[in-house]
Simulated assay, not measured.
Amino acid sequence: MYEGAVQELIDELGRLPGIGPKSAQRIAFHILEADPEDMKRLSGAITNVKERVKFCTICGNVSEQETCNICRDPRRDPSAICVVEESKDVLAIERTRSFKGRYHVLGGAINPIGGVGPEQLRIRELLNRLSDGQIQEIIIATDPNLEGEATATYLARMLKTIGITVTRLASGLPVGGDLEYADEVTLGRAFEGRRSLT
């Protein structure tokens, strides 16, 4: 335990996701030893992001304007929506340069233990987007974990009644991986998602 401001800083840093007590302590001491101008820039960047960044009113992605640059881009295919859990997932998919449609950010995944049900996610907003009849396909790109699978299953069942094509990202073995290190679920999915080579 440290005194006053140092302990407060360690405690606040420790509340960030992925930062444990030791990391929080290391970061706090780095901040203490760092150049004051560098820390002013860091502090300013944190303040700016909280003041200027909001969520797109259409898809829920982060944006400094009312709508994000993807929703404003007329070259994007309006007939396909890729549903993701978080804004960081949009960036991951955009880096692949394989998807030219639009996105819908749910703001999380169904997690009953964590107290997150479908009503806490942006599912109602997704349904509102489908009402214009322009969307032909929903691609569910939730994480391949328990919560992501629960969310994908819930969405697939709900969207099946609407008559829109619902697909799920394929999952399986990573390139360069060894079969012996793959878990049973991943290996099973790889078999289910196999494709013809001829």
Results as ranks from 00 to 15, higher is better:
Lys54Trp: 03
Gly44Asp: 15
Arg129Cys: 03
Gly163Val: 09
Leu146Ala: 10
Glu184Phe: 07
Gln134Leu: 10
Ala24Gln: 09
Lys50Val: 07
Glu3Gly: 10
Ile31Leu: 15
Asp11Gln: 14
Ile93Glu: 00
Val83Glu: 04
Glu137Gln: 09
Arg52Gln: 14
Ser23Asn: 13
Ser63Cys: 09
Gln25Pro: 03
Glu12Cys: 09
Ile93Val: 06
Leu91Lys: 06
Val175Leu: 15
Ile138Val: 15
Gly101Thr: 06
Thr153Glu: 13
Glu184Asp: 13
Ala45Tyr: 09
Leu106Cys: 01
Asn48Trp: 14
Leu126His: 11
Thr151Ile: 14
Gly114Asp: 15
Ile162Gln: 07
Arg122Lys: 13
Leu106Tyr: 00
Arg76Met: 08
Glu86Leu: 09
Ala5Cys: 04
Leu32Glu: 05
Arg72Cys: 06
Thr198Ile: 12
Leu130His: 02
Asn61Phe: 07
Phe99Arg: 00
Gly115Pro: 10
Gly4Pro: 03
Val166Trp: 05
Arg157Ala: 14
Ala80Thr: 11
Gln25Phe: 08
Tyr181Lys: 08
Pro112Glu: 09
Gly107Tyr: 02
Val84Asp: 01
Pro118Phe: 01
Asp143Ile: 02
Arg76Gln: 09
Ser63Met: 08
Ala152Pro: 02
Gly133Ser: 03
Thr47Met: 11
Leu91Arg: 04
Ala152Asp: 02
Gly4Tyr: 03
Glu12Phe: 11
Leu106Ser: 01
Arg157Ser: 15
Ala5Tyr: 06
Thr67Trp: 03
Pro144Ser: 02
Ala170Trp: 00
Asp38Trp: 01
Ala45Phe: 03
Pro74Thr: 13
Thr153His: 14
Ala156Asn: 11
Glu8Cys: 05
Gly115Ala: 10
Leu126Phe: 11
Leu173Asp: 03
Glu184Leu: 13
Tyr181Leu: 09
Gln7Phe: 06
